[in-house]
Simulated scan of single mutants.
Amino acid sequence: MLNLLLRFILELVLLSSLCYFGFHVQTGLLMQFVLGLGLPVLAAFVWGLFVSPKASIKVPLPVVLFIEAVLFAAAVVCLISSGFTTFAVIFALLSVINRIVILMWKQQSFVN
């Protein structure tokens, strides 16, 4: 159960890192607003469409893992770009370990 709680927290960090990056990128105020809200909304949309346990579009596990890796990698890049390098490394390691545990303990079902 704690592993699934960690997963939820990691997903929230993913969304908040995209939001933080968007609002602090060195562009105009309008672009900051668009990126600050648009990046996490886009990530949540893709997550809900393909990665979520109740995903709208069921895809095979390798596709889920690829999409998930892209989203988490984007969050890591955003954290590093925002100056949170140590936090980005910890976040990346926790994300990988968490995914491995989910797979080992079969905590999420997928389409074969």
Rank of each mutant, 00 (worst) to 15 (best):
L4C: 10
R7D: 11
L10N: 12
S17K: 10
L18W: 12
C19P: 03
F21W: 15
G22C: 09
V25K: 03
V25S: 09
L30W: 14
M31T: 13
M31W: 14
Q32C: 11
F33T: 05
V34Y: 01
V34R: 01
L37K: 01
G38W: 08
G38L: 10
G38H: 10
P40C: 04
V41G: 01
A43T: 04
A43Q: 04
A44W: 10
A44L: 12
A44T: 07
F45E: 01
F45C: 13
V46F: 07
G48F: 07
G48K: 08
L49I: 07
L49N: 06
F50T: 05
V51C: 13
S52F: 08
A55P: 09
K58H: 12
K58D: 09
V59P: 04
V59S: 07
V59T: 10
V59A: 08
P60H: 12
L61H: 05
P62F: 14
I67Q: 10
I67C: 11
E68A: 13
E68K: 14
E68S: 14
A69D: 05
A69Y: 10
L71S: 07
F72Q: 06
F72A: 04
A73L: 15
A74L: 15
A75P: 08
V76F: 13
V76I: 15
V77D: 05
L79K: 09
I80P: 02
S81Q: 15
F84W: 13
T85K: 11
F87H: 06
F87G: 11
F87K: 05
A88D: 06
V89I: 15
V89R: 06
F91S: 07
A92S: 10
L93Q: 01
L93N: 05
L94T: 01
L94I: 00
L94H: 02
V96T: 03
N98G: 02
V101N: 01
I102N: 01
L103Q: 06
M104W: 00
W105T: 01
Q108T: 00
F110R: 00
V111H: 00
V111Q: 03
